[in-house]
Write a protein that binds this DNA or RNA. Structure first.
Length: 814
RNA sequence: GGGCGGUUAGCUCAGCUGGGAGAGCGCUUCCCUUACAAGGAAGAGGUCGCUGGUUCGAGCCCAGCACCGCCCACCA
């Protein structure tokens, strides 16, 4: 064995073997309890990024431990068709490589091209997932546009439609002029821009004077239908009810009063353009005003803009401002920096547009989901995110589910010549269900991509059929995901699961940190701040990368730091060399792993391993992955290598048979504990141990084992060792064995209170020390409530009593 | 504007119910015929963002402030 552990080659080999031997597979098995992580399906055109890598490390370590614990562990892989994102990528490709557009191709041909493009450029991320060592059941790979999945989508759609949850409404929506589609609020980004705020006077129809409004979009003046002021605004009290003339179009409109107008902003008067502004839309609706539209879907002025038709908004705006300027109506202009909505994909400025869209009612769907969250049938971690999830659901407005895209699940809705709509679960209807007309045209819209994502916990398992998979693996258990996806995805999976299967789809949602670039900015390709996980794996190995990512997975966001991976690499190398030492000592002696501790050092390490096991179990159950790997690091470095192996070196040289057997037994346990985090190096060492019939990946997780805890002899020796140390400060005076024991005493920060007697002593000593300090504090004794002081005295007495009992009456001087 | 999180060693971060400030990296010194120099031993380095409060005692609890980040939001 090489003294330097080299992960390259080793990792790929095990990844291949595990998969070929079917060890990643999960099949329905009524005799076993399942554990399911329906892993977030990445964009089919995506590549592995740090967020994926972190999610894989989290999910896979949890899955591997559960698998070792005997659960039927399903780690579900798949891809999301990612509607707008994929369409945009293909369009860009068409433009750049072929100089054509989707419009030129036509819908059918374009769709065919997307599929073709996906065959070439898509679906590659699973290879990268494999490279992380992710034990997904790759046989089960699903795509949200698979025929079976699509059937689930349509079945769900029809179900909601029949319940009256899906309806069509003409509302103001976010329109992307580039993608030519409606977007939900959640698909927008916001950007600060420098704009000009123009103050324009609207003269009164009768009498002198007028009202001045401030606007950044003069082009929308063409669609003004009123001027609104706040009813509490003294300045305009007398203006309410009068009429003013809209410049350029020279049309009289009413001055109305509405509380939504901010008195403080601009002049306190707001021009109302219901067709092109969300607030104005609401105000206009509540005052029954018309909704003229002067800007078309392409973002340019439309036919209703009269002489300005066909112009861009900027050109039209300039025309109007000129007109005002000439007539002295443009009072002033000032620079104005504000934030505008942009398309998160193409960064085009979003046009608020009135347009007929399909909506999904949330009132009925979200109610059971909120109840389930309140009842903690699903728990988000950390707790603050649980509160956020509940609040998000409570506040969730109706969901705009239609998109004017070509890539996605085309709405299963047909409209007859009389304007009636007929919904199906995907099949073409023979006649309108309202009037029987056979002249039907299918809606050209597609569904929001998240509509299909919402079915991820059950559609890959065969729903709407009642399959054995569904029976075995629904509901699932774990979700690992990023914060920003809670509203878009987690909440929708929860209410969808409750709606169609009556049970929450999983029990725990771990919201993990965002890994930032080393300089604290977001990792992103466009900023050039991204770090490719495959490069990291190439340099440090997948095990070290997994370790490092878990170390970074606290609740707060964290800057990427290679130090975490270095730590992981050190750990892998340390383990490798520890194994090398033991295997070399056992070479050719026919030793098999066994647990036959004869010395204190051996009982001590077995007790330490079990104590660490308990800690690791606790951390796993509480999703404290960063703490969990820290426990592993200390167990391996401090306890196993620095103390235990140093202690048994004399016996190793003598090739004491029991010592060798026990050392291999201890190593085995250590490997099992490390395997969920560092599967490759542990499996590689495991396979080199004598008589290994099974793979480590399916070896049992260590059970609690407290047989080695109560070793009074060891405790006395520990105390002696500590005493020697304190007297002389010279560690070399201790025997190797004493040094091992000493570790438990002199480094108490490494041990946690549990059933282990040594640790209990340490805890008691700490308590005694604390009590003594408090009671030595004169002000405490003088000022604290008497019962508190008395209680402290009693506690001290009790601790001392317990300590003496544990120490067998041989308490050392302190 | 609202919500959430953060501020601890040069860097990246831990720090549980309030009771002797921690890790990794980096740095200093010493140690290579030794399982591992991607190693071992020892060490330096911190008014725990600021101000006030509660308490016998505050990194931790409370209030205010400052700065940073994220999410949400209809100030034209």
């Amino acid at each position: 064995m090489d003294p330097l552990y080299r992960p390259e080659g080793v990792e790929e080999r095990w990844q291949r073997i595990w998969e070929e031997e079917g060890l990643y597979n999960a099949d329905p098995d009524p005799t076993r309890t399942s554990f399911v992580d329906m892993h977030p399906p990445p964009n089919v055109t995506g590549e592995l990024h740090m967020g994926h890598a972190l999610q894989l490390a989290l999910g896979d370590s949890a899955i591997r431990r559960k698998r070792m614990q005997g659960y039927n562990a399903l780690f579900q892989p798949g891809y999301d068709h990612a509607g707008i994102s994929t369409q945009a990528a293909v369009e860009k490709h068409l433009e750049r490589v072929e100089g054509t557009t989707r419009q030129a191709l036509g819908r059918e041909a374009f769709e065919a091209r997307v599929w073709e493009w996906l065959r070439e450029y898509g679906g590659k991320i699973m290879f990268q997932f494999r490279r992380m060592g992710a034990s997904l059941d790759y046989r089960r790979e699903r795509f949200t546009m698979d025929p079976e999945y699509t059937r689930a989508v349509y079945t769900y759609f029809k179900r909601l439609y029949d319940k009256g949850y899906i309806y069509r409404a003409n509302r103001i929506i976010n329109w992307c002029p580039y993608h030519q589609t409606a977007l939900s609020d959640l698909e927008l980004d916001h950007k600060e821009v420098d704009d000009t705020l123009s103050y324009i006077r609207y003269p009164f129809l009768e009498g002198d004077g007028g009202i001045t409004v401030a606007t950044v979009r003069p082009a929308t003046i063409l669609a003004d239908v009123a001027v609104a002021v706040n009813p509490n605004d003294e300045r305009y009290r007398d203006a309410i009810g009068r009429e003013v003339i809209v410049p350029f179009v020279e049309r009289p409109v009413l001055v109305i009063a509405d509380e939504r107008v901010e008195i403080e902003f601009g002049t306190g008067a707001l021009k109302i353009t219901p067709g092109h502004d969300p607030t104005d839309f609401e105000i206009g609706r509540d005052h029954s005003l018309p909704q003229p539209i002067v800007i078309g879907p392409d973002g340019r002025m439309n036919a209703h803009a009269g002489p300005l038709a066909g112009m861009t908004q900027e050109e039209a705006g300039e025309h109007i401002l000129d007109w005002c300027r000439q007539r002295g109506l443009l009072e002033r202009q000032e620079p104005y920096r504000h934030s505008i909505a942009i398309c998160e994909r193409c960064e085009s400025r979003i046009e608020p547009l009135i347009s007929p869209q399909w909506w999904c009612r949330m009132d009925e769907l979200k109610k059971p989901a909120i109840e389930a969250l309140r009842a903690r049938l699903v728990v988000f971690h950390p707790e603050s995110q649980h509160e956020f999830a509940i609040r998000s659901l409570e506040e969730a407005p109706d969901w705009c589910i239609s998109r004017q895209l070509w890539w996605g699940h085309q709405l299963p809705l047909w409209q007859c010549e009389n304007g009636h709509w007929t919904a199906t679960a995907g099949e073409t209807p023979s006649a309108c269900e309202h009037c029987g007309s056979a002249e039907l045209a299918r809606s050209t819209d597609v569904l929001d991509t998240w509509f299909s994502s919402a079915l991820w916990p059950f559609a890959p398992l065969g729903w709407p059929e009642h399959t054995p998979d569904l029976e075995a693996f629904y509901p699932g258990d774990l979700q690992t995901t990023a914060r920003e996806i809670i509203r878009l995805w987690e909440n929708r999976m929860i209410f969808s699961g409750l709606e169609v299967l009556g049970e929450v789809p999983f029990t725990d949602v771990v919201i993990h940190s965002t890994v930032l670039a080393p300089d604290g900015r977001r990792m992103s390709k466009s900023l050039g701040t991204g770090i490719d996980p495959l490069d990291v794996i190439g340099e440090y190995g997948a095990d070290a990368t997994r370790y490092g990512l878990l170390k970074m997975s606290s609740t707060q966001d964290v800057r990427f730091n290679y130090g975490f991976m270095q730590e992981g690499r050190k750990l892998a190398n340390k383990l490798w060399n520890a194994a090398r030492l033991l295997l070399a000592a056992c070479e050719g002696r026919g030793v098999e792993p066994g647990i036959r501790p004869a010395t204190t050092a051996e009982r001590w390490i077995l007790a330490r391993i079990d104590a660490a096991r308990a800690e690791i179990d606790e951390h796993f159950e509480a999703f404290r992955f960063a703490h969990m790997v820290q426990t592993l690091y200390r167990l391996t470095f401090d306890d196993f290598c620095d103390w235990y192996l140093e202690a048994i070196k004399p016996q190793l040289r003598e090739a004491d048979f029991d010592t060798l057997a026990t050392s291999l037994g201890a190593l085995e346990r250590l490997l099992r504990l490390l395997h969920p985090v560092m599967p490759h190096v542990t499996e590689e060492i495991w396979t080199n141990l004598p008589s290994r019939a099974t793979r480590l990946i399916v070896a049992p997780w260590p059970d609690p084992d407290d047989r080695w805890a109560d070793d009074v002899d060891a405790l006395l020796r520990v105390q002696d060792a500590a005493a020697i140390f304190r007297r002389s400060q010279v560690l070399v005076q201790l025997t190797a064995e004493e040094r091992v024991i000493f570790a438990a005493v002199v480094r108490p920060e490494r041990v946690k209170a549990d059933g282990n007697a040594q640790l209990e002593i340490e805890r008691l000593r700490k308590e005694v020390s604390r009590s003594e300090r408090m009671l030595a504090n004169e002000r405490f004794v003088a000022n604290a409530a008497p019962e508190v002081v008395e209680g402290e005295r009693e506690k001290l007495a009790r601790y001392e009593r317990e300590l003496r009992a544990l120490e067998g009456g041989r308490r050392l001087e302190r």
